[in-house]
Design a protein around this nucleic acid. Structure first.
Lengths: 344, 344
DNA sequence: TTGTATGCGTTATCAT
DNA sequence: ATGATAACGCATACAA
């Protein structure tokens, strides 16, 4: 059943059928009804390939994300997908893992599918070397590229980020203001955003005259794609090991809630009182925070806001008003205090 | 840059270019090289729309899932996407929420995109009324429909499920065998799978001569799409309320880990010893289990196995050997014991 | 091994 | 308001 069939059944030309389908105004009400009825009767659906061939678009955006099973990214993907769909765009999901080579290949694959835009979800798409970011600039010559939680200054690339630096800086300051002298920073990502957070921690310590030594910073290894989450007991063990090595700390700040939970487990196992002996703060404000005992203080990075802003911007760009869209938008995180800290 | 351009640049016909692209054997090595070089040089990519128009396929499968931000579904989506991509198929993701009307609409939308198959992820796609499942049968007339964790007997629909009934039956028996007299069942989904689990619980109790009253079963409301997870404190409060109403229980079995965590929080807050006074078991075996204190006993439903089986089957069907694929495949769950229980 | 010609189902342009 | 037809870019049947 194609447009010719409908044309034949109704006795009008394919052009008119097409007009009806696309809601063109210059069709008589009578003809429109006739055509609509036939479409309904025969269950005709326009062929998207033929349409795509002519218009060179299938109203589809590609999503690149490292690992859609990571709760943070899953949340973002959901939010982006929903918003795109409501705006009439389908979503092709493409998980790349954390290795560079695959990212580049999947990007090419997406472009070869003639997506109308690509959205990079997660801070891990911007590498520290410009060379490695070339493929993004190249892609942006074809279609608009949106980045959620990553930043790069290239034409036709639009970035929406959370101010991770300030959020960590601020929460570290609060820790110190609440009387803590020896903060520990725990992280598992060396992405740009990861480094921003780390800098926030370092600078807050420096600002308060606390020396930063190897005992203050703990890298627990990178996330692996497809694992349900980051193994919390790895963190627990790493913190315990650090303590056993003689390092002293009275609080921990983590770049991700799951890491913070590891710290809480360490403290509970070591018989430390939380937050009196050992305070903990996480990042992302997942429901995991409420699963923790005591409940976990965290930074809400307002992912939904970022995603909505990103997709709204994209739709505006599609509408042709790209000049009104900022290339870079930064939102502030928000500290949500719960039982693992005692700020004042 | 299209196939005509490459044809012109190389001095061979478009047919030959097409042959090279598609790896046809009957092309001289010399010609092949020449064409390949030109393709490389000009960065030519075949137009998928034109290709799709002729072949009527874009090597794409549609995924329908209620909420890709639910950790369980996110895990499944990741697994399915990865496997599909490795098999040369792209994935269109479509989140439907838990309402029926949207499911039907998104299914239509997917079919109108001419996907080569549809994968339904999650137990919430099979309704108890046949009427409501009609749209699945209808879709299956066009393309193969795969269901992960849901079951229905219809031509061209292939189901892969976990034996939820037996898993819950078994874990309930273990609870009772470990000395518990008053189990509580906590659930938040009335899907087919949800009912299977509940039946497993009921039958295990009946089998052991324990009467099932309203104080033994707690429904805590349904999941909402897009929320990060199920609000754990809602569960905690609901259990506390049940206890306050005079109901007595010495263990809890939950249909999802997050609900079990709620029960653990209740016990901790009530000063009950786990597992002596109050044992807890969850379902799904997420890393959440390890975040819990004590760590949570759970049923591993082997989602990765289900997903892999589902996609492998699909690829076999694509290859034309659908007759070798079972319409229904059931895997067993596996009980993973941790600190919240003391089985023997 | 290679080339020619045609169909695939739309949309858009240009007539009428 | 409606119709005829070209164009979109590829794969393939058929011819050479």
């Amino acid at each position: 059943m194609n447009i010719y069939d409908i044309s034949r059944k109704t006795g009008v030309s394919t052009a008119t059928v097409s007009r009806v389908i696309n809601g063109s105004s210059s069709v008589s009400e009578k003809t429109r009804r006739k055509v609509l009825d036939a479409i309904e009767e025969y269950g005709y659906t326009p062929n998207v390939f033929a349409r795509g061939l002519g218009l060179n678009t299938m109203k589809t955006v590609g999503i690149l994300c490292a690992d859609s099973s990571d709760p943070y990214l899953a949340q973002a993907v959901y939010c982006v997908e929903e918003h795109c769909r409501k705006s009439g765009y389908d979503v092709i999901l493409s998980c790349t893992g954390y290795d560079h080579s695959l990212k580049e290949r999947q990007m090419d694959s997406l472009l070869s599918k003639r997506v109308d835009a690509v959205i990079l979800v997660g801070s891990n798409y911007i590498e520290s070397s410009d060379d490695l970011n070339m493929y993004i600039a190249k892609a942006a010559k074809t279609v608009p590229v949106m980045i959620i939680n990553g930043s790069i200054n290239v034409p036709n690339v639009y970035c929406t980020v959370c101010d991770d630096y300030s959020a960590i800086y601020e929460i570290t300051e609060k820790m110190i203001a609440s009387g803590k002298k020896n903060p520990l920073y725990i992280y598992n990502s060396e992405s740009y955003s990861g480094m921003q957070k780390l800098n926030g921690f370092r600078n807050a310590l420096a600002r308060n005259g606390i020396e930063v030594g190897s005992g203050n910073i703990l890298f627990v290894g990178s996330r692996k794609p497809g694992g349900k989450s980051f193994p919390v007991n790895v963190v627990k063990a790493a913190v315990a090991e650090l303590a056993a090595a003689g390092h002293r700390f009275d609080c921990a700040i983590a770049s991700d809630d799951i890491l913070a939970v590891g710290a809480v487990k360490y403290a509970n196992a070591a018989g430390l009182r939380i937050p009196e002996d050992f305070a903990v703060a996480g990042y992302n404000n997942f429901d995991l925070c409420e699963c923790c005992d005591p409940e976990l203080t965290s930074v809400d990075n307002r992912l939904d806001v970022l995603c909505d802003h990103c997709v709204s911007s994209l739709m505006t760009i599609f509408s042709g008003s790209e000049s009104t869209i900022p290339k870079h938008t930064m939102f502030s995180g928000e500290i949500i205090e719960r039982g693992t800290t005692n700020f004042r």
